[in-house]
Computed example of a mutant assay.
Amino acid sequence: MKEAASYIIIILVAVLLASHLNVVVSGSMEPSFYRGDIVAVENTNLFGIQEFNPENDVHVGDVVVYDATWYPEPVVHRVIDEQTINGTKYFEIKGDNNPKPDPALVTSDQIKAKVLTIGGHLIVIPKIGYITLAFRGL
């Protein structure tokens, strides 16, 4: 019985840890982080629990993970502007290494996670995401 409980705890910890890590798939955020790095995130919805509210907790300078209308995978870029249009809050987002902002404004509903920081520094685990990229064929 103790062994089964240990396995359940290990699985729960792994699921919680995995849900708070995001693999970087491109160089669009260099030099903040690089392709193959992993960033630690908090989620808008983790099994029904809201860890943060994009409407109130996302600001210029934050790095977010969002569902883009122009790209099939989640995008990890920095918020460079906030604006309200007809009562709806929108974010202008851009990769640090990109010359132009992303092609469409982003609503709060599109934001799925925010990269965590400590003392203003993004929490990044270098290079170990390459394993995931290889499995996904990216």
Rank of each mutant, 00 (worst) to 15 (best):
T69M: 09
I118M: 10
N53D: 15
M1Q: 06
A4G: 10
R78T: 02
P74E: 15
K114G: 01
F47Q: 04
K89R: 13
N98D: 14
V13T: 13
P54G: 06
G87N: 09
L122K: 15
N43K: 14
G48C: 10
V64A: 00
V115Y: 08
V15L: 15
P126N: 11
N53A: 11
Y66K: 02
N45F: 07
N97W: 04
G48S: 08
V64R: 03
K2H: 10
I128K: 09
V41F: 08
I123N: 02
V124S: 05
I10R: 14
T69P: 02
F91G: 01
M29C: 08
V58Q: 01
A14I: 14
V13C: 15
T84E: 14
T44F: 10
Y7H: 14
R136Q: 15
P31Y: 14
G119F: 01
H59W: 02
N98A: 10
S32K: 11
I49N: 08
S32L: 14
I80M: 05
L21H: 03
E3Y: 12
V39K: 01
K100L: 12
S26I: 05
Y66F: 15
I123P: 03
P74D: 15
L138S: 14
V23F: 00
E30I: 12
F52C: 07
A5S: 13
D57K: 07
H59A: 11
Q83E: 13
K94G: 04
A18P: 06
E73T: 10
E73S: 14
I93L: 03
A40P: 04
V63W: 07
H59Q: 11
I93V: 15
Q83W: 00
W70A: 13
N53W: 03
P103H: 03
D62A: 03
D109G: 11
L46Y: 09
D102A: 07
I85Y: 06
R35P: 01
T88M: 09
S28R: 05
Y7I: 13
S108T: 09
H20N: 12
Q50G: 13
Y66Q: 02
M1A: 10
Y90E: 05
M1V: 06
I93T: 02
F52Q: 08
S26A: 13
M29G: 00
W70R: 09
T44D: 06
F52E: 07
V24C: 03
F52T: 08
D57V: 00
V64S: 02
I131R: 07
P103F: 04
V13H: 09
T69W: 00
F47R: 03
L116I: 13
A68N: 06
T107D: 02
A14F: 13
R78W: 05
D81G: 09
N86W: 07
Y90W: 00
N97A: 15
L12Y: 05
A68L: 06
L116G: 05
T132H: 06
A40C: 14
Y71Q: 11
D67G: 10
R136D: 15
S32G: 11
S108V: 00
V39D: 01
L138K: 13
F135C: 11
V106R: 00
E30T: 11
M1H: 06
D81E: 13
Q110N: 08
H59E: 08
